[in-house]
Amino acid sequence: DEVTIHLGDKTIRVDGLDKELLEILKELARRGADEEELRKEIERWER
């Protein structure tokens, strides 16, 4: 499953996201997290 996250004018595509992680990323994005913060969160989950 590829998920596309839209952040204002930026788009991040991620393969096979965990549903819980997806919810966390959506919440972070709502709070104004930037792409770098979201990537760090994704990397934390992948470990």
Rank of each mutant, 00 (worst) to 15 (best):
E43L: 08
E41R: 03
E36D: 14
L22D: 01
A33E: 03
I5T: 03
K40T: 08
L25M: 02
V14Q: 03
G8V: 12
L28C: 01
T11D: 11
I5F: 02
A33T: 04
R47F: 14
E36Y: 12
L21P: 00
G32W: 01
L7W: 08
E23T: 10
W45N: 01
I5D: 03
D34V: 05
L17W: 07
G8S: 11
E43A: 03
K19C: 06
E23F: 08
H6F: 07
V3N: 15
D9W: 03
R47C: 15
A29T: 08
D34C: 03
L22E: 02
V14G: 05
E2F: 14
D1M: 11
A33R: 02
E35Q: 05
E35T: 05
R31I: 09
E35S: 07
V3I: 14
K10I: 15
E20L: 10
R44P: 00
R30N: 13
A29H: 07
E41Y: 09
E2T: 14
L38F: 07
K19D: 10
D18T: 09
H6R: 07
L7Y: 07
L22T: 06
E23W: 10
T11V: 13
T11Y: 10
L28F: 04
E37Q: 11
I24A: 06
D34E: 08
A29N: 04
V3T: 13
R31Q: 14
G32D: 02
I12C: 05
G8F: 11
A33Y: 07
R47A: 15
H6T: 13
E46A: 06
D1G: 13
E2Q: 13
L28A: 05
K26C: 05
L22W: 09
G8Y: 08
K10P: 07
L21M: 03
G8L: 10
D1E: 13
R39I: 14
R39W: 13
I24W: 12
D18M: 06
K19S: 12
R31K: 14
E20H: 08
D34L: 06
K40F: 09
R13L: 14
E27H: 03
K19H: 11
A29I: 15
D15C: 07
E36G: 07
D9G: 07
K26Y: 15
E43W: 04
G8I: 10
D15P: 15
E41H: 04
E2Y: 14
G32H: 02
E27K: 03
R31T: 10
E41Q: 09
H6I: 14
T11W: 11
I12W: 04
L7E: 03
D15V: 09
R30C: 06
R44L: 11
L7N: 04
R47I: 15
K26I: 15
G8M: 10
I24F: 07
I24V: 10
R47K: 15
I12H: 04
E46S: 05
H6E: 13
G16T: 11
V14C: 06
E43P: 00
E27D: 13
L17G: 06
L25G: 00
E27F: 04
E41I: 08
I24H: 11
V14H: 04
E36P: 04
K10R: 08
R44Y: 08
E2V: 14
K40P: 00
D1R: 05
E20R: 11
L21V: 02
D15I: 08
E23Y: 09
I42N: 00
E20V: 10
V14E: 03
A29V: 14
E23I: 11
D34R: 07
W45R: 01
R31Y: 07
V14L: 15
V3P: 09
T11G: 14
G32E: 02
E41S: 04
K10D: 08
I42R: 01
A29C: 05
G32Q: 01
R31D: 09
D18L: 05
D18Q: 09
I12F: 08
G8C: 04
R44I: 11
L21A: 02
E35R: 03
G32I: 00
E46V: 08
E41V: 13
A29Q: 07
E43V: 06
R31V: 06
L28W: 02
D1I: 13
K19P: 15
D9F: 05
G8H: 11
E35K: 04
T4V: 15
K10N: 11
D34T: 15
K19A: 13
E23Q: 10
H6K: 11
L7H: 04
L7D: 04
R47N: 15
E46I: 11
E2W: 14
L22N: 02
R30A: 14
K10H: 13
E43K: 05
L7G: 04
I42Y: 04
L25I: 09
E46W: 07
I5S: 03
D34W: 02
I5N: 03
R13W: 13
G32K: 01
T4D: 11
D1H: 13
R47V: 15
E41M: 12
L21N: 00
E2C: 07
L38N: 00
K26L: 14
E43M: 06
E2N: 12
R44M: 10
D34K: 13
R39P: 00
K40M: 12
V14P: 05
E41N: 02
H6P: 08
G8P: 05
K26F: 15
R31E: 09
L21G: 01
D9A: 02
L38D: 00
D18F: 04
G8A: 12
D9Q: 03
T4M: 13
D34S: 15
K19E: 11
E41F: 10
I5K: 02
R30G: 13
L22M: 10
I42G: 00
I24L: 09
L28N: 00
I12V: 07
K40W: 09
H6M: 14
R13Y: 12
V3R: 04
E23H: 07
R31L: 11
I12M: 08
D15F: 03
T4S: 10
L7A: 09
E43Q: 07
R13C: 03
A33G: 06
R30D: 13
R31G: 07
I42L: 05
D9M: 02
L38M: 07
A29E: 06
E2M: 13
E46H: 10
K10W: 07
R13A: 12
D1T: 14
E35C: 07
L28Q: 02
K40L: 13
D9V: 02
K10T: 15
I5P: 02
W45G: 00
V3E: 13
E43F: 03
T11S: 13
T4G: 07
I42S: 01
G32V: 00
R13K: 14
I42A: 02
E43G: 04
K19R: 11
L38P: 00
E27V: 05
G8E: 07
A33D: 01
E46M: 09
E41K: 02
E37C: 06
D9K: 02
G16Q: 12
L25H: 00
